[in-house]
Design a protein around this nucleic acid. Structure first.
Length: 439
RNA sequence: CGGGGCGUAGCGCAGCCUGGUAGCGCAUCUGCUUUGGGAGCAGAGGGUCGCAGGUUCGAAUCCUGCCGCCCCGACCA
């Protein structure tokens, strides 16, 4: 992409409404525009990152055997009356009436709808297990939206739903999602720690929150430091095998949010030197809740014995739009965002220090072509802005690499590359610079 | 939902108390000079001062109502 043709409205000054780093940086880097409290337009740069997060989540869900579909944002109130949640959910649910006075709602989650879809088609244990997911916008009418995309009212969420005949099989499905989540967050460059959680209004008895440690996290967390060094399962993890050992490894050390924190147990189980109190951002939650929805909604399958049984269900959410904020919270400095390589909206920023100079232009074009061919998604700053402004913008939008090409270096046959995360710079010939970036 | 605060140009703000032709910085446009870490000079464009009533000869300014937004807390993915 050439910056001269792109849409990147960066702000030099901090917007007054943004208090935390991710919100401030997303606005300044031209990723986001607020349209109402907790409701945002994703500008091109932000949209690219959102899509990258979404794609990693999708790949890991698919790898774990989940199947993608897409359910609507609007749902009928009657569906929610079946589970009894239409009245329970309260003011957080945005209720809408259509032209025929039908009661509808903007979905805050999709347990009811997926259960309705499942029961319409699946009647035999032979079709189990199934795990269906979608990535769709949700709306929860928060009393107090804040922190940009970290607590918006409208947000993009991946929600998966597992269906099994028995509780044991349901727990195996739960384990698959648990492992998929470890992989997902790790691929995004995040340390996400699973913590035992209250299951909340969704119900059930087995639940974990996946928490990214960050100073601006909304809740205090208490954990055993050794959790930070546990190995994340690799791409080759066998989802068909018994995953209980991985689950055990990741749940035997103490880790809890303040809501469920048990100070006495913490002190008993965790040596003082290994205790870590921090703040965290919840980026995902897994629930196993058995027949909580399948029973009232009559989502039954026939077992081998010919008897109808309510299916055992779990649901698994990832806050896709929140993750964009969480990644920035976990990775930024005074100058701007520092994208982990896989999340970066562009892989490398090429800075043309003297547009109009034939030699510099030519070198930039050559670099642009080579990096594009290598799949590095370069962003070429070919604008007439002055060097200082270009450098500031590059640091702000946080691309992993900067390739700086100007007349001074070219006179000596060299260009400069800068690694955003470390600030390390190297001066070397263009071909070598491109090679280094592509490694 | 309790408490506090703010709405004036794209962004950041002053002006309001004490009513009298709407300002500053950045950004934008034009020209010239510049060009390796947010340039300089000269000129220009852009605002029914959140909305609606009221008081007044006259309202950004005073009064009333509404709307929107932010912060702290409670609540929540």
């Amino acid at each position: 992409m050439r910056l001269s043709r792109y849409f990147l409205p960066v702000l030099k000054q901090n917007p007054s409404e943004a208090q935390i780093a991710s919100h401030r940086l997303m606005l300044r880097a031209g990723m986001l525009r607020q349209e109402a409290a907790g409701i945002y337009a994703w500008l091109p740069l932000g949209h690219r990152v959102l899509k990258k997060v979404e794609q990693i989540v999708r790949e890991e869900m698919d790898r774990a055997g989940a199947i993608e579909l897409l359910m609507p944002t609007l749902q009928l109130a009657d569906l929610w009356r079946e589970s009894g949640r239409y009245d329970d959910y309260g003011a957080e649910m945005l209720r809408i009436t259509d032209r025929h006075d039908r009661e509808m709602l903007y979905g805050p989650t999709n347990e009811e709808m997926i259960t309705e879809i499942f029961r319409a088609y699946v009647h035999s244990y032979k079709d189990l297990p199934k795990n269906l997911y979608h990535i769709q916008w949700k709306f929860r009418d928060e009393q107090r939206p804040r922190f940009g995309v970290m607590r918006g009212r409208e947000f993009l969420m991946k929600d998966a739903y597992s269906f099994d005949l028995t509780e044991a099989a349901g727990r195996a499905s739960y384990n698959q999602m648990f492992v998929a989540y470890l992989r997902c967050f790790s691929r995004m460059g995040l340390k996400a720690i699973p913590m035992k959680a209250e299951s909340g209004p969704i119900g059930g008895d087995l639940s974990h929150e996946f928490i990214v440690l960050a100073q601006t996290g909304e809740s205090a967390v208490f954990l055993d430091k050794r959790m930070l060094d546990l190995p994340v399962p690799g791409e080759d993890v066998d989802y068909g095998a018994d995953l209980t050992p991985i689950l055990d490894e990741w749940t035997h050390l103490y880790a809890a949010t303040e809501d469920v924190h048990d100070a006495e147990r913490y002190e008993r189980e965790t040596p003082e030197a290994e205790r870590l109190t921090a703040r965290g951002i919840e980026v995902g939650q897994t629930f196993f809740f058995g027949d909580k929805y399948s029973r009232p909604m009559k989502a039954n399958v026939q077992g081998p014995d010919g008897v109808d049984t309510a299916v055992q269900m779990g649901s698994y959410g990832v806050g896709v739009s929140r993750l964009v904020g969480a990644i920035i919270e976990a990775s930024h400095d005074d100058a701007g965002i520092i994208w982990p390589d896989p999340m970066a909206p562009f892989g490398v920023g090429i800075v043309n220090l003297r547009p109009g100079d034939p030699e510099v232009d030519e070198a930039c074009e050559r670099a642009y072509a080579a990096l594009t061919a290598a799949g590095k998604e370069p962003l070429l700053d070919d604008t007439a802005e002055r060097p200082g402004g270009k450098f500031a913008t590059m640091d702000l939008i946080g691309l992993p690499w900067q390739l700086i090409i100007g007349p001074r270096g070219l006179a000596d046959g060299v260009v400069e590359i800068k690694r955003r995360a470390t600030g390390d710079r190297q001066t070397l010939p263009l071909a070598a610079a491109v090679r280094t970036i592509c490694e």
